[in-house]
Every structure is written in structure tokens, then in C-alpha cells.
Design a protein around this nucleic acid. Sequence first.
DNA 1: ATGAAAGCGCTAACAT
DNA 2: ATGTTAGCGCTTTCAT
Lengths: 336, 336
Amino acid sequence: MATIKDVARHAGVSVATVSRVINGSPLTKPDTADLVKRTMRELGYRPNAAARTLVSKRSLAIGVVVADVSDPFFGSLVKYVDNVAHKQGHHLLIGNGYHEAAREKQAIESLIQNQVTALIVHSKALDNDTLRAYAQEHGAMVFINRLIPGLEDRCIYLDNYHGAFLATEHLIEQGHRYVAYIGSSHAIEDTEQRQQGYEDALNTCRVTDETHPVMMAFDTPEETGGERAMAALLEENDSLSAVFCYNDVMAAGAITALTDRGYRVPEDVSVVGFDDSLIARYLHPKLTSVRYPIEEMAELAAEQAIALSTKQPMRNEKGSYAPTLIKRNSVTKSSE
Amino acid sequence: MATIKDVARHAGVSVATVSRVINGSPLTKPDTADLVKRTMRELGYRPNAAARTLVSKRSLAIGVVVADVSDPFFGSLVKYVDNVAHKQGHHLLIGNGYHEAAREKQAIESLIQNQVTALIVHSKALDNDTLRAYAQEHGAMVFINRLIPGLEDRCIYLDNYHGAFLATEHLIEQGHRYVAYIGSSHAIEDTEQRQQGYEDALNTCRVTDETHPVMMAFDTPEETGGERAMAALLEENDSLSAVFCYNDVMAAGAITALTDRGYRVPEDVSVVGFDDSLIARYLHPKLTSVRYPIEEMAELAAEQAIALSTKQPMRNEKGSYAPTLIKRNSVTKSSE
DNA sequence: ATGAAAGCGCTAACAT
DNA sequence: ATGTTAGCGCTTTCAT
């Protein structure tokens, strides 16, 4: 591998000059610059990023930690972070946390150690104190999908409460009186925020005490969890005509459970999901879902993180994003 | 940020000693090692990866270039590469190529420049010569989903031909006489291999010349492309009773086109996809598809790449993987 | 078992 | 406009 010295020698100039043309310094004569560029090309020279990072104390790497890249939700997050990173000449270092505290810690620390210039973290398993400590250690760390008290300006998150409220309200507006909620048994903040949104929507829209009872079932946030929860709900309550689910895969499970038991969706039971993930469009019927604008959120997070790393004034938008309801074919007016 | 010097000073030893305990050298007295470790912890010391890489000429980073991380197929690829990388103490640097030659080049070069110790490349837009040149430059570069002549031992790829053959054969075995093929209009090798598999299966199983005609339509390898291709096929041929599709999303489009026109799947028309991607299980009916064992392939690729980087003897498996048919509900016996 | 010192490839003063 | 040189944080001989 050719080094800067080789280039300097071959071109008959000093390493400083080569360095200048690499970095596009304006203080080099066009002739010299051309000569150096040609030499670099001839030698197949590539600047050593490690050396650059070491001396300049700033790398062009941005770290991203997500739960699992193979999940399209996180895949999109990574993609949109990469989009803005790429535009600014940066590249991505990624770490998977798998929703485990130990893995999340490891991922964050590995990235810090690798001198990432900015850091976008999606963590659900680590507590606020731990995250605050990391944030203090690395000044350009931004958190996505989480609100940490004291770090409001470094958090980009979704208004889960509002999303759940929207979904439930929509169901009620379609005339449904018995609207159930299928929740996640994982104790993360999203869970309780969505549940609260559901309950409040019921309360707000309630006409008399009997009309809109709270009906809930909890299970793991996967397809099978959705199936089990739906089954449980059905056993206790046969008057139910609509369900709002914690996420799209649980909704998929709920639809399966419903169909298996002879219920038609949406004619007999309406279903709403959350996330508007890839599968929502492919389910049958196509799933009405609460859209999670992860693309915009990921881009903002990347911009904020890079801005922090260069101490630029940040475009000071608020970190809270509003979800919207995407209406498809899994909801219909109540037949009553 | 504390450096190795700080640790040395605080612990009252030399930097060499600190370096030794960092690297678990056996030539340090346990007492000294403990002292140093404690000091490192107290100072919140993290070795600077750039410095390490610079001096030791080997980084712990592995590069992966895929077309688009937000596609679950590539997300899985990245995930399984990460799994083996993580086990061996490495981390991932990723680059998106978006099926564009320029982007793919850029991604590969950026990773090389960043001193990745090994490289797993999924490239469809770059030609064999370019790739061969890169492979020569970086001795630990492995190609996934591609077979480059002269680089057979560094390629991990799927037997597309066999997969297509399998799918078509299955349809014929179910009694279908008019089996069409919906192909991709993108000119990459997969396209023609799958088409060849389809045609050969038809020929092999053909009883008389009229029984199994070749019927094909090509469009972009997306859902809308599948819809259009299916529509075109239907216009020319109303006796068709089965379709094999280039991939699952085209199959999804085909099903939509079919359903929209009043055909039932699989009662009127059987459909088979390719990839066995995430959506296959969520489509209605659940899609029979050719499984692409990307997880195993990604793991092998990672192991090969790391082995190459350390000049270890490689477990010398063959790079070709055999696809299998996953039978679900989109195929039924021909009613004729 | 430990320390001193050279040097990895590069950038950034400082000189000229 | 270009060259000289110190030094970034670390590993690795070579001494001791």
C-alpha cells in the first residue's frame, strides 16, 4: 500500500504538499496539484483513514446502534442515517443491541472506542442514568425513539400516546363500542404510552360508562403473541368488534386468530396496527396502521448528531414526532 | 479522553506495560496488571482504535457492502455477518451500493480506505474485471451472491438455475400444463439463470411439444412490475394456470393483478415466488417460494473473509448453495 | 518483568 | 507556494 511519502517522492514534492492536495487546500499551485493527483492515481494511493483520524482527532465515521438490522424498521433507520451521512462525506459503523442491556452497552462502547464522530443510539434496554453518562462522555450522541429527561435536545422520539389515541378514536368514530387493545408484555415505555392513549381515547369518547369498556390482553410483541392475545380476548368477550394492536406483527397474529375462528376482518372485527411496517401492505386485508415516520426521524437524528459533532448551531426542531393514521382495508364501520 | 500515557503515569508504570496488559500479554506480573486495570477503569480509559490500527496495521473492522440495508434480505445478510464478526471481536462498517456502479465503487473504496481487515461484497452493478482488481488489492475480500471466474474460492452464491428448475418442476408435477414465467427486466446474471432453469424444467418435463409452452413476461423486479407482467401474460394467454415469479414482490404484484381480475389464487392460478422473503408468509394466500439461505451464506462469507485476512487455512466448502422449495398455500393441483 | 525509544501515516504549525 | 518537523496514541523491538 502506497503511503503519502511514496507519493511525495514520486512527485518530487514534500509530504505537506501532498497532504494539501488531498485536503483540497487552496494554497497549492494548480500545476503541482495536478502532478500530485496524477501520481496518486498511478500509485493507487488511498489515504490511510486511521492515520488521519489519529492526527486530526476527527474521523468520518458515524456510529449507529439499533436492536437488529434485519428488522426492516431498523433497516430503514440505518438507511436514512446513511443517506445524510453519505451526503456529508461520512460512513457508517453499526452495532446491534438485540434489546439486551449488555449488548447495547458493548455496541456503544465499541463505537466510541472506534472514534466515531457522531452517534445515533436506539436503546430500550439501558436505563436513563447509563445513557446520560454516555451522552456526557460523547458530546455528539443522539437518541432515537426515546425521551431522556435532561437530554431533551438530544432525543428524537415518537408521540406514542397520540398515535394510540388516533387509532382508538378512529375505531370509535366508525361506530365501534367494544374496542379492545392488544399490548406488548415487554416493559418499555412505548408499551405504557400506547396503552394510555388507548384508554384515554376511550374515556374521552365515552358517552355512558357501559358503552366503551376497557378490554386488554398482553403478550410478546410478535405474531404468535398477537394470536394468543386475540384468542384470550375472544374467550372473554364475544361482543368485541374492533382491536387496536401494539404493532403490525401482533396485528397480523390477531388477524390469523380471528380468521381461524371464522371471524371475517373487517366485516366482523376491525383491526388497527402500529408502525405501518413493510408487512402492513401485504397483509390480507391490507392493514390500517399508525405510521411511524422513522425515515424523517432518522434523518433529523443524523443531522443533529453531525451538527453536535461540529459544534454547529443545530436546526432546533422539537424532537417529538406526530404519528398519522394510514387507512387501508382492515377497518369498517360497526354493523350495529 | 484519557490516553495510554495518562494511565501509565497514574499507575506509575511505563506505557509499554500498559500496552501489555491491554493486550493480555503474559509477561506482566499479576499485581502490576491488576493495578493497571484498576487505573484504566478509574480514568475511564478506552484504547484509541485509530492509533492501534495505525501501528499494528490491522483493524478489527469488517466491511460489508450491500445494495440497500432497509431491504430485509440485505438486513439479514448484514445481521449474520455481524454475528460471526462479533464472536471474533470484530465490528461492522457498512456501505450501500443501491445497485449503482458508482455507488458500489465508492462504498468499496471507502471501506478499503478505512482499513477494514476483511470485506464482504454484494455487487451486481460492477463488472468482473473491476471486481477482480479490487480482489487483488484487498486479499480478504469475498463476494456474495455472485460467481466471478478466476475467483471461485472467494465467491458464495446461490444456484439460481436449480431454484428456478425446482419451482417450475413442482408446478408441472401438480399437473399444470401452462406454466408462465414472470422475469426481471434488470440485466443481471440471476435473471437469465432463473429463466434458463424455468425453460429447462419445461423441456425436461415436456411430454409433447404442445403441452408445456414457454410463456414469459418481463418487468421491473418490484410489486408494480409483477402486476404489469401478470396483466400482459393474461392478455395473451387465458389458458395459463400457473406462474413462477422472479422474486416474492413480483409474485405479490402478480397475485394482486390476478385477484383484481377475478381469478382466485391458487384455485384458478397457482403462484410461486423466489427468495422466501419476509412477506411470503404474510401474503394471502401464503406464498410458496424458493428459499434463499442467505443466513448460512452470510455466515460462511464472513468466516471465509476473516480467514483470508488472517491467512488461516479456510474451511474449504464450495461456494454454491442449493435453494429449496418452501411449500405454502399459493399452489394447488391443476383442476384440468 | 519492565522501560526507553522508534515509528506507523498523516496533519498542522512554523519557516522560508 | 512549498518544505521541515513535531507529534497524534499506540505497539513493538531491544535493553536491562
